[in-house]
Simulated scan of single mutants.
Amino acid sequence: MTGLRAAAESYLVMRRTLGFKLTDQGRALMRFVDYCEAHHTDHITTDIAVAWATDTPHSSDEVYWSRRLMVVRIFARHLQTQDPATEVPPPDMLPHHKRRIVPYLYSSQQIAALLDAADGLAPALRAATWRTLIGLLAVTGMRKSEACRLDREHVDLDAATVVVVDSKFGKSRRLFLHPSAVTALRDYTIRRDALMPNPSANSFFVSTRGTRLDVQNITHTFADLLDTAGIAAPPGRRRPRMHDLRHSFAIAVLSDFYRGGGDVQSRLPVLSTWLGHVDPKSTYWYLQAVPELLMLAASRLEDAFGESI
């Protein structure tokens, strides 16, 4: 094992111990180490960091390059305290850009079409799992990774609650379920246990092999379900994502806040807590991203101030 590889693995262990998940960033960092080893270097230099960040044959996206270099830059800052030969790429080199994807909003009819498409999967356990998974994401706004990590003891159908444990930023939270959601989850547990009585995992959602759902692979099945349901991206926009179910939930709740006539500002922290956001500013993105919400906000201002605005 090279010194750079050992340092990278130790760095990832340290940061994960502090509560950082570093899922994508960890994989990117180890790919960078592979690149350094292939080029016979055991020290980080600006040249090799930039060369790796931009060595993406299938992408010339400068934002993507910037994020790859940021992974190396943060690690290099840490490593320089142990290895003075380490070069930290300057901040003005491939400067970091923030670009947030405009969410795709699923209508209730489209969600119903996705559920119907899931019913067509085979075998029966796969169909039941996917129907219930999509339904849970749509009515709770959970992240797909959170749903895949659910264990059976995290779902209390008698209390109508789901506990999301150790999610993003190491936070846990309790979500309350509508009676219709409880019924759907209870039906799934009965069908799941009948079709897979001895699974190898204690997860709530079970694959046809009896294992936990793989969050890295479920997007492929979801893409097939989009095609079956006839859901396509609008012109000039990227393909709808599974994560957009979370956006759709948040937008629906915010829209209800505005239509209800109450103090939306005071209720945003509640939605932020429900979604697992660290602070309300992350939730504000949903307001900024969707014209329909901006129209509702403008209508509220017109009602309050009339022609003076």
Results as ranks from 00 to 15, higher is better:
D256K: 08
I231V: 11
T273L: 11
P240K: 02
L275C: 09
S255R: 15
L268I: 15
P240W: 00
V264N: 13
H277T: 06
W274K: 02
G236Q: 11
G260N: 00
G276D: 01
A233L: 12
V278R: 12
V264L: 06
P240T: 01
G262R: 13
I231A: 04
S255N: 06
L271V: 05
A233K: 09
D244P: 08
V278P: 00
P235N: 11
V253A: 03
L245N: 00
L275E: 06
S272K: 02
H243F: 00
R246Y: 03
A233N: 15
S248E: 08
R238L: 12
S266R: 06
I251C: 14
I251G: 03
V278D: 07
P240V: 04
R267L: 06
P269Y: 10
D263I: 09
M242P: 01
L245A: 02
S255W: 00
V270R: 00
A250T: 09
F249H: 08
F257H: 05
I251W: 11
L275K: 03
R238Y: 09
G261I: 07
A250Q: 09
A229N: 14
P235C: 10
L275A: 03
S255Y: 05
V264I: 14
H277N: 04
R239P: 09
G236E: 12
D227K: 14
L254W: 11
H247W: 13
R246L: 01
V278N: 10
H277L: 08
H243V: 10
D263C: 06
P235D: 15
F249L: 07
A252F: 08
R246M: 04
A232S: 11
G276K: 04
S248P: 02
P240R: 05
L275T: 01
Q265V: 12
P269H: 03
D227S: 11
V278L: 05
R246P: 10
P240N: 08
F249S: 04
A233S: 15
R241Q: 13
P269C: 11
I231G: 05
P234D: 15
P269D: 03
V264W: 14
G262N: 11
A229H: 13
G276E: 06
I251K: 05
L275Q: 03
R238D: 13
S266Y: 05
A229Y: 05
D256M: 05
Y258V: 04
L271N: 06
H277S: 01
S266C: 10
R241A: 13
L268K: 04
L271D: 04
S266W: 01
L268R: 06
A233Y: 11
L275D: 06
H247L: 05
D263V: 01
Y258A: 04
A232Q: 07
R238H: 14
F249G: 03
S255A: 15
L254P: 01
M242F: 11
I231D: 07
H247Q: 08
D263T: 07
T228W: 07
L254A: 09
D227E: 15
S272W: 07
P269N: 11
S248V: 01
P269S: 09
